[in-house]
Design a protein around this nucleic acid. Sequence first.
DNA 1: GTAGGGTTAG
Length: 606
Amino acid sequence: MISSFSLSSVHIPPLPKPNQIQRKNWKSSSSPTETLTPTPKDLLDNFNTVFELKQLHSYIIKTNKDYSILLVTRIASICALSPSFDYARTIFRRVEKNETFIWNSYLKTYAESESPINAIRFFYRLRQSNLCPDTFTCSFVLKACSILLDLHNGRIVHGLVLKLGYQSDLFLQNTIVHMYAKGGAINDARKLFEKMPRRDSVTWNILITQLTKLNEIDKAQELFDQMPDKSVRSWMAMIAGYVQCGKPKEAVKLFKQMEEAGESPNEVTVVAVLAACAYLGTLDLGRHIHEYLDKCGFRKNVRMCNTLIDMYIKCGCLESARSVFDEMEERTIVSWSAMIGGLAMHGEGEESLKLFSKMTRIGIRPNDVTFVGLLHACSHMGLIAEGREFFTSMRLLSEAHEFIKNMPIKANGVVWGALLGGCRVHKNIELAEEAIKHLQVLDPRNDGYYVVLSNIYAEKGRWEETTRKTPGWSTVTVNGEVHEFVDGDGNHPQAEEIYQKRDELLTQMKPRGYIPNTKVVLLYMDGEENKVQVLYRHSEKLAIMFGLMKTPPGTTIRIMKNLRVCEDCHSSFKLISDIIDREIVVRDRNRFHCFKNGLCSCRDYW
DNA sequence: GTAGGGTTAG
């Protein structure tokens, strides 16, 4: 709110010192908004700026220059949120403009403040004073209702709009549709939408966006197909919607369609499609979009850079992520957390901790996501102590446990989840069970944690306690196209060729010491041979065979997996990288593995 | 002076 008003944009000589400010017979009077006392936070946030605004205002008066009503009402409405109510009223009384306009600007400021509830309170006060609301008054209070998800007051204002005969105002109609849709009454929004005599692209976009937020992506697509004049923001709503609904492939497809339709992407579509690239691990497209941004001279804002960092990290390009991070003019905690977590994910534990201390040195407060990244980094620091692995790892785990217990913020499910991941590495059942106890309370619907626990039990030979495993899938990008494989996939059109390639490689792997590691097969299953068959059909193995078949020798193969890579696949990939002399990059649920010349960048520690 | 959007973990 205040940040949008910049003193530096007004050409003025040095401001007078506080004691030089001349107050010209300005009487104080009681304000009608006394009950709208700002919160202590408002006061803290605004104090200095309000003071500066008063200085500016006094300068305007002293020099008797023409000033815009907008500028002065802006000063007044900012003062109205601070202790300077009287000051604001004094300004308003001196401005010749219709009264409703003035109160509307108050209302707008309240609606956009940190406590939009003040806009609703203020609106009722205006009603009591018999001031007739105009369409602007209604739209500002409806905005506050949307932000607060306040359907009750929203309905009351809607009633008033009808009573005052404003129902044909398209702006207001859209605001009302938005209020209902966002507030959880999508059916009411839809009914209103159907009845509207006139709609514009905003009307459609509102419904499309809110449907995607409800995971109703098919209904959103239906509306999108029906709408007459699609704007960039319509494409944007759908593309971002597909990403949010966990359908990145569709998002990328739509992005390409948008380009074919001759529409240029805007900042938000770019962010959404970069997020899709991050999810899919499609480095080519991600890089292409980055180049496009540079070519078109897009203004790179923080969110866009954050998404670029995330995309590069998840596509395995730590260096590019780092250079985006280093070149940023302004960074938020999201930027720092993404980079800290990214370094950890790539096994750069020390660098990750270094960046963390740099961040805290300049006074940026970490959040829960930063801690998750740090925990990952800590778990990779165990590399240093390879020789003393057992003791070190025990100490590391208990340190992580202490760390969580003493964290300045309450640990959430993700933090305990990270500790659980550590327990999996170090096969510590007792601590894992404690983590699970917390997770049952903090994140009861997430069954992914039980998969990890079952892994720990399975590897410790406690079969009776293992549960069913989430199906694993892997993808591999070939010529810019993403191919997906699921565990045990026998239905792939080229299954036969894939299995042939696998057997061919197995004959080369076995003389080099490859022995199928069936202890990672979690399902309770009779017969060693059956277990071996399950192992051979792991999705990442199928993906790599497909990649080998479809790409020229020497090309790096990039695989993305939804779960952790299993130990058998890990040791197979090391051998394969040596046999075929190629680099294989695997992104699993936790981190990256870069296989080269028979070794993995994680040094078998993950 | 009014309406619609995007980022980090799991």
